[in-house]
């Protein structure tokens, strides 16, 4: 029942001095739960990391070398997001 449970993009700062990096996405009904789920899923609650969650629908994507005319209708859906970027050091094997 994720229809009431929108998609959130998760960004993690693994250590001081590093920027937040996109690590993946998840579903949650609100920001507080999204943050909680992100901590459980992407960091297994490692301490000292900083996590941002952003509603996927709030992200506007540039696609300079993509031809929008050729997107199928699903391209408008928020779930068409880049996911699974590199996991920051220190989070990978958790």
């Amino acid at each position: 029942m994720t229809d009431h449970s929108p998609l959130w993009e998760v960004f993690v700062r693994a250590r001081r001095g590093l920027s937040h990096t996109h690590v993946g996405s998840l579903h949650a009904p609100d920001a507080e739960l999204a943050l909680r789920n992100a901590r459980d899923l992407y960091t297994r609650r490692q301490e000292g990391v900083s996590i941002w969650v952003v509603p996927a629908g709030a992200i506007t994507a540039s696609s300079p070398d993509e031809k929008d005319a050729f997107f199928d209708p699903a391209a408008d859906k928020v779930y068409r997001h880049p996911t699974f970027y590199e996991v920051p050091d220190g989070v990978a094997h958790l």
């Binding site: 909680r36 789920n37 459980d40 899923l41 609650r45």
Partner: peptide, 11 residues
């Protein structure tokens, strides 16, 4: 109730 909660309860 939700897969995310499965993970949380296991934690």
């Amino acid at each position: 109730p939700e897969m995310e909660e499965d993970i949380a309860l296991a934690n």
